[in-house]
Design a binder for these strands. Structure first.
Lengths: 111, 111
DNA sequence: CTTGAACATGCCTTGACAAGTATATTCCCC
DNA sequence: GGGGAATATACTTGTCAAGGCATGTTCAAG
């Protein structure tokens, strides 16, 4: 199966997923929010579905789409080896706090 | 600038980044580890550099490449709205602990 | 200053994919 | 059961990017 990165290379598909993040939506709702033609929405949804990023259920003549988490999880895991790059100072802070753990605590600064 | 997702749609580029996650590497080192022709490596590195995903420094006749974190950070942030999908059970655990809040509390976790 | 190593760039071909347009399918409602 | 909404699919076309190959550039060493 195609990598989730390849699927999400398309801006419209990321937009669709972001809209679905809050709740499931019908094709028509996605269409009006994104302001792109309906066949495009359907085609993007097809790609997303075949990649396992969304799933649909039937509601009369409409289809309601919702997010499937697993491929996004894999991206999250792929990022793991890099995460220390931007949490390094936090790590350092935590080690620092650990080291002065016996002493009484003062204020800490963030970001 | 192109989205980092589009850049990472290419498997070889993800492989390069993964190799650079541990330490900076020269083009030749990347070439022999990935077993793809040198011009391909250079071209992928160019794309990665122009997208801000890596940067290079000169060491005599070699160029050493290393990861730049910021675009990866943005992907990490893009994932944020979805993260509750796979941490839901943790959330449930936390709510559970909150519900038995009358009992004495210990430490809380951040992140 | 010549040779060779390390890397970058240019050109060409080929394949993939998104957009647009038209048409097909499914199902509700009258 | 016929019409129209909601959605899917088919087909065509243009664009763009990756791969392959050849060549250019820079530098170190002798």
């Amino acid at each position: 199966m195609e990598s989730a990165f390849a699927i999400l290379a398309e801006p419209s598909r990321r937009a669709i997923l972001s809209l679905l993040a809050s709740s499931e939506q019908s094709v028509g709702e996605l269409e009006t929010q994104l302001r792109i033609p309906q066949p495009s929405v359907s085609k993007h949804l097809r790609v997303l579905r075949e990649a396992g990023l969304v799933e649909s259920r039937v509601d009369a003549q409409r289809r309601l789409y919702r997010v499937r988490a697993q491929p996004l999880m894999e991206i999250d895991e792929w990022l793991a080896p890099f995460r220390h790059f931007w949490t390094a100072h936090v790590d350092a802070l935590e080690r620092h706090l650990d080291r002065m753990d016996q002493a009484p605590r003062k204020k800490e600064k963030k970001r």
